[in-house]
Amino acid sequence: MYLFYSFLFCGFICMISQIILDNSKLTPGHITSMLVVVGAFLDSFSIYDQIIKIVGGGAQLPITSFGHSLIHGALAKAETSGFMGIFMGMFDLTATGISAAIIFSFIFTLIFKPRN
């Protein structure tokens, strides 16, 4: 059942952003930034955690999950370290994604030549 919910949720987010992209002058950069803010907002009161529990992997793939893991790590650290935990735990969960993107794009840029 997770598979079906993943299909619906991920497709729904992509469809909404495609509709916004077609009917306004915003670029994909605007839309991804907006979705990150939406993800962070949804997780500030643990709504996104509930969505992940229901949907599974389909909710962790879109870029909204990036905002969710930023604030999730910050709040988890704030529980133990207090106020400064928000700064300390910010990149706890997203570090994998960012460092993987940096490392792979560096290696592949060294190996391959630009096509166009």
Partner: peptide, 25 residues
């Protein structure tokens, strides 16, 4: 083709989400 674009985005995005869940499982 706005309708077609939205449909394609829905199908491809949903397919990606399904692959993600498949990999996790």
């Amino acid at each position: 083709k706005r309708g077609e674009n939205a449909f394609l985005a829905f199908m491809s995005g949903g397919f990606m989400g399904m692959i993600a869940e498949g990999i996790i499982e």
